[in-house]
């Protein structure tokens, strides 16, 4: 947590500074106006995105990611390819110098992340994706923070989808196992009743069995009509469930196609899927 002002000074002293739960997103940024969408757009598209964090160098170069209604789109690629960055760019967490993001017929490029949630995007970060000291139920309630209507039905659906966490609804989420935490995290995002669900490596750090189960749940969510966009480290499994797959290399689109097509593509197989 180095800082240009005082370097690393003073940040070790727990009696004056609290490093726990600090954020990285500027919550004070105001949204700009909505723009019109373009004819023939997919449901969600980040088109020709170029940009990076803060004033740093560009990480994305003319990168395009899209997901159609009711489909699963996955972003795969080697480490450092900018997969998560692309996801964050769509969510408004970094400065886009060029390109635009359009959702459901509207241009949302100027919106801040909070307002993108209100516009219907649900996002599950890769890490720190739960409120550890709050109960499972409170986590889900917080997911539904922006809703003014009755949330009981949605909560019941989430508990149906993830029976394991339903049993622990009164327990602090931080005390759950890794897989259950991921379920809480996805459940929290579903509570907003989003129009599109974005998952950043939902299976990172969970056991293979749990991973299979999570993939099952994600497929179930997509079959329920909710488009899913996800970044995945396990390229093979991801492509198997993907309707559309994007292979990124150094922040740019390298290959795009259906999961099946890319699995058959020799170059993709050789470079990313290990033959």
């Amino acid at each position: 947590m180095s800082d240009t002002t005082f370097g690393n000074r003073g940040n070790r002293d727990a009696s004056v500074v609290n490093p726990k739960g600090r954020g990285t997103i500027d919550g004070t940024r105001r949204s700009g106006p909505l723009g019109p969408g373009q004819a023939g757009d997919p449901f969600l598209i980040g088109e020709a995105m170029t940009g990076g964090y803060g004033k740093g160098a560009d990480i994305l170069h003319d990168c395009t990611i899209a997901v159609e209604q009711g489909q699963i789109a996955v972003i795969v690629g080697p480490n450092g390819a900018g997969k998560s960055t692309a996801m964050k760019a769509i969510f408004g967490m970094l400065n886009l110098r060029q390109g635009s993001v359009r959702l459901n017929g509207q241009d949302i490029t100027a919106l801040n992340p909070q307002d993108r949630v209100k516009a219907g995007m649900g996002f599950v970060p890769q890490v720190n994706n739960i409120f550890p000291s709050m109960t499972v139920e409170e986590n889900l309630e917080m997911g539904a923070y922006i809703r003014r209507d009755d949330i009981k039905a949605t909560m019941a659906q989430v508990y149906d989808l993830f029976p394991a966490v339903a049993a622990k609804r009164r327990q602090a989420a931080g005390e759950l196992s890794g897989g259950q935490r991921q379920q809480v995290a996805v459940g929290r995002a579903l509570m907003t009743q989003p129009k599109v669900l974005m998952l950043d490596e939902p299976t990172a750090g969970v056991s293979p069995i749990v991973m299979d189960e999570l993939f099952d749940r994600i497929i179930a969510i997509a079959r329920g009509g909710l488009p899913v966009l996800m970044v995945e480290q396990n390229a093979r499994q991801a492509m198997m469930i993907a309707d559309k797959a994007y292979v990124l290399v150094q922040g740019a689109n390298a290959h795009t196609g259906t999961g099946e097509e890319l699995m058959k593509n020799d170059e993709v197989r050789r470079t990313f899927l290990g033959g």
Partner: peptide, 19 residues
Amino acid sequence: KAMRAYSDNEDLALLSGID
């Protein structure tokens, strides 16, 4: 609860639509 959520995890609170 929003205050507790923000204290627990600032970014996630923001991603939940908490101002």
